[in-house]
Design a protein around this nucleic acid. Structure first.
Lengths: 134, 134
DNA sequence: TTGACTTTTATAATGATTACAAAAATGTAG
DNA sequence: CTACATTTTTGTAATCATTATAAAAGTCAA
C-alpha cells in the first residue's frame, strides 16, 4: 500500500492530519464507504472530526483524481480508492456493491464521437452471490 | 415508437392519464430528463400535475424495467427510456450527458463471479465535443 | 510574536426525495 | 344508478445528503 502522505504531496495537497487519516481509511477499506461510514469509523479516533471536513476532503480527493465517486443512483455517494481498474456490481436485493475483476480491456480511445474520453466506469446490475443463495 | 399505453399494459400497470403522458414524454425526450424537467414541461398540459406523481411514476417505471435511472453522482437522477442499448458520456465541464453508440457487445454472462447479472451500464467521463471547441 | 494564510469546525441553508393523509378517480356488486 | 372498495393522484410536511458560510484553530514565515 502506498504511503498516504506521499500520495497527497505528489498531488500538491498539504498532508494535514485529517487528510492523511481519511486517505488511509479509504486505502484500508476498499468496500466503497460513504461519508457517513467514514465519519462513524473515525469519530472515535478524532473526536473533533466534522462531517464537513469529510465532505470537503473527499471532494478535493475526487478533483485531484485520488479517489472517485461511485455512481449509485438515488443514494449517498460511495467513494473508491483503488490502484487497479475494476468494474462494480450493484445488487438490487441488498443494495451492496461488489468489485468485479473486469477483463474489459476497453478500447478507451481518446476520441469517441468527438468527445475526449478521460475514464470509464462499468456498472453491472443484478443479484449478488449472497442474496442469490436465499 | 411503441404505443405507451400498450407498454404499460404489458407490464401490468394500469394506464392512467398521467402515466401515459409521462411515458410518452420520456419516449419523445431521450435527453435524459430529470424529475424537474418532466414537471416543467408537462405542467402546462396538466395543470394539476404533482411532482410527487412524477416521483412515484418514475419509481414504478424503474421497478418494472420500463425506464432506468442514470447514475450521475451528486446530482438529481436522470431517467432514460430507450429501446436499444447505449453507453453514456458525462461531461466534466458542462455536466451534460451524451449517448454513445457503444459497440461493446459486452460478454454479459448470466453468471459473473457467482453474481447473477441482469444488466450493464457503461459511463465514460470526459469532455464533450461542444466544450472541447472552446 | 505578529500577521497572513490554510484548514477545520459548527451551524444554518439548500435541494432532492420520501412519508403521509386527504381528495379524486375508477371499478364493482347490488 | 347507487353505494362501497380500491387505486391513483395530490399537497404538505418531513427527511436526508450535501453545500454555504463564517468563526475558530492551526501552520508558517518574517
Amino acid at each position: 500500500m502506498r504511503d498516504a502522505k506521499r500520495i497527497l504531496e505528489e498531488k500538491d495537497i498539504s498532508p494535514s492530519l485529517q487528510r492523511v487519516i481519511i486517505l488511509k481509511y479509504l486505502q484500508e477499506h476498499p468496500n466503497h464507504p460513504t461519508v457517513e461510514d467514514v465519519y462513524h469509523d473515525l469519530i472515535d479516533d478524532i473526536p473533533t472530526l466534522s462531517k464537513t471536513t469529510i465532505y470537503n476532503t473527499l471532494k478535493l480527493f475526487t478533483q485531484k483524481g485520488i479517489v472517485y465517486q461511485l455512481a449509485v443512483p438515488g443514494n449517498e455517494a460511495h467513494y473508491d480508492y483503488s490502484e487497479g481498474y475494476h468494474a462494480h456490481l450493484l445488487c438490487e436485493e441488498c443494495g451492496g456493491i461488489f468489485d468485479i475483476e473486469s477483463d474489459i480491456s476497453l478500447n478507451i480511445e481518446n476520441d469517441l464521437e468527438g468527445h475526449l474520453i478521460l475514464g470509464i466506469e462499468v456498472i453491472y446490475r443484478g443479484i449478488c452471490r449472497n442474496c442469490r443463495k436465499e
